[in-house]
Design a protein around this nucleic acid. Structure first.
Lengths: 202, 202
DNA sequence: GTCTATATGCGGATAGAC
DNA sequence: GTCTATCCGCATATAGAC
């Protein structure tokens, strides 16, 4: 209003909304790598290129930030499924499975969810995680055209994929023949997608 | 040697070996509930009825204690599979699956493993967890008579079971019809075993 | 919108007594 | 074999400046 003074941009400013997006992306990866408790707000701050107190300022608490990350992950998951849904009903499972593995491009997505899924003991995160998982189940039943047992099998394979990702099993694919066989069976035709991402990471 | 003086047992003493067992049992449950990072040596100490520094004295570091817990969990798993193996080859999967669910009696076993499985990023725990998982895979292939894909399917369902346990999904079985359906599909004929344990806990 | 400085509480590990 | 006392580092959150 009063002054239009332009100072030589010592600090990169942006709209809070954009900054939030940027932080959420960074947080999803860091939480994925280190878990909820194992992640410090300072790690996230450095990954996002801002100060630690500013992370707290933006999200209130670390817990709220984690809940936001989880919700974002779930939203992206459903969004990806929505896109993969149209087509031959016979092969919908295959399409959704492929979409799931391609989501590995969103770094930390699977693992942030997985960390939430083992936090059922936490009253706040646990409830949110249960609700989120149940939401995915309902989605597959209602929109995926899956029966209960079909949904269970789909989710089971998803959880094994998550476990392989959590174990960083792809990093020993070449070194251990048993790991190779296990990964071949787990990912099947989706293996190259999973492995390509690993390379891009290095 | 010199004195045979008996003082009126102010502190319950036991052989280090026995104490270790006791602490490992307590630690498996606490680690299962709170994860590796989320667990403090003091929580374990109180659960085991000893002092916090003594936990460190016994195991060196918290990390070594966790590794011991993980190894113990894996040993018990294989031991349970060994017992369930003999019988009709047609139904070996069913027997192993049941044995797996009955292992919920060893509190924290599944969840301590699951926490290890999402810690692949940690150089020490990650390597041990990968080796452990690969060991289970090899066991099923060699002694369970499973093919690669059969093993993958068995493990996948195991991971979904772990996820349900991690989410404490059984605790909302009665309250949420979708949760009920999900749990029915996940545990199938093993549901009553899983639910009975939950009751015993309360 | 973003930072620096800092208060405060907690956790792993060590020292050393009994 | 087991404890008490304690050091030190770290992490979340607050206060307040720019």
């Amino acid at each position: 209003m009063s002054s239009v003074t332009i100072h030589h941009a010592p600090i990169p400013r942006m709209k809070a909304e954009d900054r939030r997006e940027l932080v959420l992306t960074a947080a999803m990866e860091v939480f994925g790598d280190n878990g909820y408790v194992g992640t410090t707000t300072d790690m996230i701050a450095r990954a996002a290129g801002v100060s630690q107190p500013y992370i707290v300022r933006l999200f209130g608490t670390k817990e709220k930030l984690f809940l936001d990350v989880m919700q974002r992950a779930l939203d992206r998951l459903i969004e990806a499924f929505d896109k993969a849904l149209p087509g031959d009903p016979e092969t919908v499972g295959r399409r959704l499975g492929l979409a799931y593995v391609e989501l590995l491009n969103d770094r930390g997505l699977h693992l942030s969810l997985m960390h939430a899924f083992v936090s059922g003991n936490d009253p706040v995160i646990g409830k949110a995680a249960r609700d989120g998982f149940i939401g995915v189940y309902k989605y597959l039943r209602e929109f995926g055209g899956f029966s209960g047992p079909e949904t269970e099998t789909f989710l089971a394979h998803g959880m094994l994929i998550n476990t392989m990702v959590g174990l960083r099993m792809t990093e020993v694919y070449g070194a251990d023949p048993v790991a190779k066989e296990l990964l071949d069976c787990t990912f099947g035709e989706k293996l190259d997608v999973a492995m390509k991402l690993r390379e891009a990471r290095a």
